[in-house]
Computed example of a mutant assay.
Amino acid sequence: MAKFQCLAEAVAENLKDGDSVAFEGFTHLIPHAVAHEVIRQGRKDLTVMRMTPDIIYDQLIGMGCVEKMIFSFAGNPGVGLLRRFRDSLENGWPLQVEIEEHSHAAMANAYEAGAAGLPCAIFRGYRGAELTRVNPNIKFIKCPFTGEELAAVPSLRPDVAVIHAQRANAKGDVFIEGITGVQKEAVLAAKRSIVTVEEIVDDFGGISPNATVLPSWTVTSVVAVPGGAHPSYTQGYYGRDNAAYIEWDKVSSDRDSFTAWMEENVLKQGPEVFETRVAHLKNAG
């Protein structure tokens, strides 16, 4: 059953050095607050996974938290490169990250297979794809019923899944609306999960119980972190901070400017900074 905690407690209890962790969210509801707490607690040797890793992965890699990344497409959305990720790959700074690259379809199917307790995902895809040359975890099998050649990849079953959502109720049920990616599948596939939310309410009111995306028994920790997805957006609460993504390209282009920004904006800050940033964003709008 879900346990209500503060952010520092949730990360300390659920995520250890060497764990595999999925920080999921697609365009929307990206769990920045938890990633920053992971950096503050100095976690190392993590295997991180995500569809479309963006700047929180750039930050985790640049701070030396990551040993390996399993992903499909990586970039600063709408802006360009992940510069700390590239520096790690090309120059080994601060560490040489290992990569396992997949298509979006492969990642989505792998999470779903993990949620179902299956050892691999089987789907149509990867025919003629060049990723098969560099990723030995892409295999092909023959359907025993039709003879069709199908792709197979290992299921994704992270030690910890991290997501952000709009609300949790007093029982620990989690409600998500708007654009979703594979948050539900990642949580169901994981051994443990941390869900940050904009607010905790007594109940969801007139919302149909069928709309509850994650019942409390699927969630390990629930943490109230208003603004916890900033600079991504949370539908119904705040919009995307496009200026922050543009700024990140400049900040991350240089090792010294990156280190100084992380010191000032992550290492010296707590989760309350997210609420302050969102308030500024709303005032500016």
Rank of each mutant, 00 (worst) to 15 (best):
Y238A: 07
A170S: 10
F204I: 04
T218Y: 00
A186Q: 05
I194G: 07
S193E: 11
D203H: 07
F204W: 03
A170F: 09
A243R: 14
F175W: 01
A224D: 11
V213K: 02
V201H: 05
E198W: 10
I200M: 11
S232Y: 09
K171A: 12
Q166Y: 00
G239P: 05
V195C: 10
A229T: 06
Q166S: 12
P209M: 08
D159M: 07
T234K: 07
L214E: 11
I176C: 05
D173F: 00
D249A: 15
Y237R: 15
P215D: 03
E247Y: 07
E247F: 03
I246W: 14
W217F: 10
G178Y: 13
V213S: 06
V251E: 07
V174D: 06
S155V: 10
G206P: 08
G205S: 03
D241R: 14
L214G: 12
S208E: 12
R167M: 04
A243N: 14
E198M: 08
V195T: 14
P226Q: 12
V223R: 04
A165I: 02
V222R: 01
L214C: 10
V162E: 01
A211M: 09
D159I: 02
Y233R: 12
A224L: 01
W217Y: 05
V160P: 06
V187N: 09
K250L: 15
A229H: 05
D249E: 15
H164D: 13
V219H: 05
H164R: 03
G205L: 00
A190D: 09
T196K: 11
S193Y: 00
W248S: 02
V223A: 02
V160D: 03
Y238C: 11
K171W: 04
A244N: 12
V197K: 08
V251F: 08
E247Q: 13
A165Y: 08
R240K: 13
Y245N: 08
I179H: 01
R240T: 11
G228C: 08
D203Q: 08
S155K: 08
K171H: 04
L156H: 06
T180Y: 03
Q235A: 14
W248C: 09
D173M: 01
S155L: 11
H164V: 03
A161I: 02
A168T: 05
V174Y: 11
T196S: 15
A165D: 00
K184E: 14
T212I: 15
G227H: 02
I176G: 01
A168K: 04
S208F: 02
V223L: 00
V222K: 00
W217I: 14
T180E: 11
E199Q: 10
Y237N: 15
E177K: 10
A186M: 02
I246Y: 13
T212Y: 06
V225T: 11
Y233N: 05
E185C: 00
I179T: 09
T180K: 13
T234F: 03
R157M: 08
K250G: 15
A165H: 04
D249R: 10
V222G: 03
G206D: 13
A229R: 07
K184A: 13
I163G: 01
S208W: 02
V219N: 05
V187Q: 10
G239H: 00
Q183M: 09
N210D: 14
N210A: 09
A211I: 01
K191S: 07
T180F: 00
A244G: 12
K171V: 05
I200D: 07
Y237K: 15
G172N: 01
W248D: 06
Q183A: 09
I207L: 15
G239E: 07
V162T: 02
L156I: 15
